[in-house]
């Protein structure tokens, strides 16, 4: 009679329970508790989680409000005290704003490709609106790499500005713009980009914000032959490259992006023009 090997059985069990003894568990899912909520201004809050979820600046996560919905966000702080910084915009964020310290939520991710910071000696960071949030950890990584950092932030008005202190500390130069002139200069953050390029030998531009702004950044960078990395946004459903909902041309923002650089951006006919809604219907931006 052949004696069964115990070790085989053990290996089989291991195969079944790779994630903390939970079979067929959801990939990249983390149950998280809110540890702290900071009001950055009347419209914007930062939510801190009790778990460290390793991500690169520019990658995104899907935040799940149990029974409500699940939406994409990028971390505004990485490492031990990771957080997202959110602007109240619709039913989902309104619901999120109701949560308190101790509320349990779910996070899937991180997903997508992050920013590539290697080789950027003189970096320009251009952010508009909520796009400011994910660029802070990027600036922190650039700073660690000893890059020089030139930042231009744009907001609707002074009530929407956040992370000013943080960017002041991280950057070699900080410019602020608002649409109504209530904070910084009246205008748009791209105005400072031309100036930075002329005087600071910028070799890489990082940007996040409304797509009209990103398209402008891309056009400037193309004209000046400068590398840029843009964080694009589309309606994300699955986040794992299968439903196709987040398509921009033949690229999936969730898996091929959300960070795209010149070579790919050049091929995107829909950049700055069209996006799709939940039905998949294409409409003008």
């Amino acid at each position: 009679m052949v004696k069964e090997k115990k070790s085989n059985e053990k290996d089989f069990g291991k195969e079944l329970n790779p994630q903390a003894g939970y079979s067929n568990s959801i990939k990249d899912f983390h149950s998280v508790k809110l540890t702290k909520i900071i009001e950055e201004n009347p419209n914007i809050k930062t939510f801190y989680f009790d778990k460290q979820i390793d991500a690169k600046p520019g990658q995104f996560i899907m935040l799940w409000l149990p029974g409500v919905n699940e939406k994409p966000f990028a971390f505004s702080n990485l490492g031990k005290n990771c957080s997202i910084t959110v602007q109240k915009r619709g039913p989902f964020t309104e619901e999120l704003f109701k949560s308190r310290k101790g509320t349990i939520l779910g996070i899937r991710g991180p997903f997508g490709k992050g920013f590539e910071t290697k080789g950027a000696k003189n970096a320009a960071i251009i952010a508009g609106g909520c796009g400011i949030a994910p660029l802070k950890p990027l600036a922190e990584e650039l700073k660690k790499n000893k890059s020089k950092i030139y930042v231009s932030l744009g907001v609707r008005n002074k009530e929407y500005l956040f992370f000013k202190k943080e960017f002041k500390k991280l950057s070699n130069e900080l410019k602020i713009f608002s649409e109504d002139g209530s904070v910084g200069k009246k205008g748009y953050p791209t105005e400072a980009l031309e100036e930075f390029i002329k005087s600071k030998r910028i070799d890489c531009v990082f940007a996040c914000g409304p797509e009209i702004l990103l398209k402008k950044v891309f056009d400037i960078c193309e004209k000046r032959k400068i590398n840029c990395q843009l964080s694009l946004e589309r309606y994300v459903k699955c986040a794992i490259g299968i439903c196709g909902q987040c398509a921009i041309d033949d690229q999936l923002v969730c898996r091929d992006g959300p960070i795209f650089s010149n070579e790919k951006l050049r091929r995107l006919k829909e950049l700055g023009k069209f996006s799709r809604n939940a039905e998949g219907k294409k409409s003008c931006l």
């Binding site: 994630q19 959801i26 990939k27 939406k71 699955c238 299968i242 439903c243 039905e279 219907k281």
Partner: peptide, 18 residues
């Protein structure tokens, strides 16, 4: 008819499938 579908999460990857 046009349909927005269900609210997220709509697709989840499990260990042995979706």
């Amino acid at each position: 008819n046009p349909r927005a579908g269900h609210k997220n999460p709509t697709v989840l990857a499990l260990q042995y499938g979706i």
